[in-house]
Each structure stands twice: as C-alpha cells, then as structure tokens.
C-alpha cells in the first residue's frame, strides 16, 4: 500500500498540525518539502496544478486529495490505527468537536497571523495582532477551566479529539510571537496532556523539553 503524501513546509503551523495528527493516529506519511519561503514554490505553476489555492499543506492519499486542514485531520483520524479515539461517536461529543474545530480554523487563526508577522514581518506593528491572539487564548483558557470542573481534560470531552490537535500548535507556538504561557495555566496543563499522547512530535519553536 502506498503511503499518503504530505506536501508541507516545516516552519508552517498548519503543516505541523497535520504532521502531528498523522503521527498521533499512527499514519506514516511521505513528506515533500515545499520551499514556501523565500522561494514561494507554493505559487509556482507546478504546485498550483496540484493545489490551485497555492497553500500548504496538501495531503494526497490514493484517490483522496485534501486541501483543507480540518478535512485532513478527520481523514487521518478515520484511517489511522490509533486515530478513532480522536473522533467521538456520540452526537453530543461530535457537536462539541465540530464547534471547537470551527473555532480553531476561524478565531484561533489570530495566533497564526501574529506568529507569521513576528517571524517574517519587517517592523510590522505587532500589537493589534497579539491582542487578537490573546483574546482567542482567553476563550480557550475559559473553556478548559469549565471542562476541568466537569472532570474533562480536553476542549470537547475527556479524551483528546481532532479539535484539541487543531488547537495545540497555535498555543505551543505562541512564544514565537512573544506571548508567554504564564497567563494561561489551564492551557498549559492541557498542552502537557497532549504532549503525553503516544506519537506526539514537536516542530521548530516547540521545545522537546518543557
């Protein structure tokens, strides 16, 4: 059986989200490095033929070709030998996962924007970006505090779901934008629980030690 191919860029947080999900679900993927910066290879005709939106990552698994990260996460969870636990079977759990997955790919993107500007920006005013990122972090912090009162350690239940994996990189990489973790104790504890999952991997900017 041929392995899924992930076209990705190592410094990209969305690419890492998919690498992390694949590793946690026990799916071996073949990685193809795309020279996003400085080469802008994701805007080259060759890459655009595969991905007309010109973004990384891109996941190809047989006839399945995925360009949207949430679809990649659920696909890997469904197909990986350790993946099914990341997708609850009951309607209540599924509803919470879908709600927090949507949060991860909407409001939580403020963290990604702040990080990009901090790393690749050149004197951009970071304050409004960091303020939006901190506002999103507070929402997740409050959710995790509420969850802990119910005895649940993760955003959508008592087990890590695809929504937690979608949220992890934004928090773990927030120090790239000079946002410290000290103000978010519930998120810190949650991040420790994710780090303890079998198959957990890091990326540059997320220390192996913690």
């Amino acid at each position: 059986m041929t392995r899924p191919v992930l076209w990705n860029y190592d410094l990209d947080d969305a690419s890492y989200t998919v690498r992390l999900m694949a590793s946690l679900a026990g799916v071996d993927v073949d990685l193809r490095a795309v020279d996003v910066y400085p080469g802008a290879e994701h805007h080259s005709p060759g890459y655009l033929a595969r991905h007309p939106l010109g973004r990384v990552p891109l996941l190809e698994d047989g006839v399945v070709q995925l360009r949207q990260v949430p679809a990649m996460l659920t696909h890997l969870a469904r197909t990986g030998p350790r993946g099914t636990g990341f997708l609850p079977a009951d309607p209540v759990g599924t509803a919470a996962v879908e709600d927090w997955l949507a949060f991860a790919f909407r409001d939580w993107l403020a963290l990604s924007a702040a990080r990009s500007a901090s790393i690749f920006g050149d004197g951009v005013d970071l304050d409004p970006l960091r303020a939006a990122a901190i506002a999103a972090l507070r929402v997740a912090e409050d959710r995790l505090v509420a969850q802990s009162l119910l005895g649940s350690g993760f955003v959508a239940g008592s087990a890590a779901s695809v929504a937690d994996i979608a949220l992890f990189p934004g928090f773990a990489l927030s120090r790239d934008s000079n946002i410290d973790h000290d103000a978010f104790p519930a998120l810190r504890n949650w991040a420790r629980r994710i780090r303890a999952l079998e198959g957990f991997v890091t990326m540059p900017g997320i220390p192996d030690y913690h």
Partner: peptide, 17 residues
C-alpha cells in the same frame, strides 16, 4: 534546493526560541 533550505531553516527556528 527545498531540502537544503529546510535543513537550515529548521535549525535556525530551533535557535530562534
């Protein structure tokens, strides 16, 4: 070229933090 870039950029981002 992408592999050479990747090698250096990963190391540099590990140093950045």
């Amino acid at each position: 070229h992408a592999e050479l870039l990747r090698f250096e950029q990963v190391i540099f981002m590990q140093d950045r933090i």
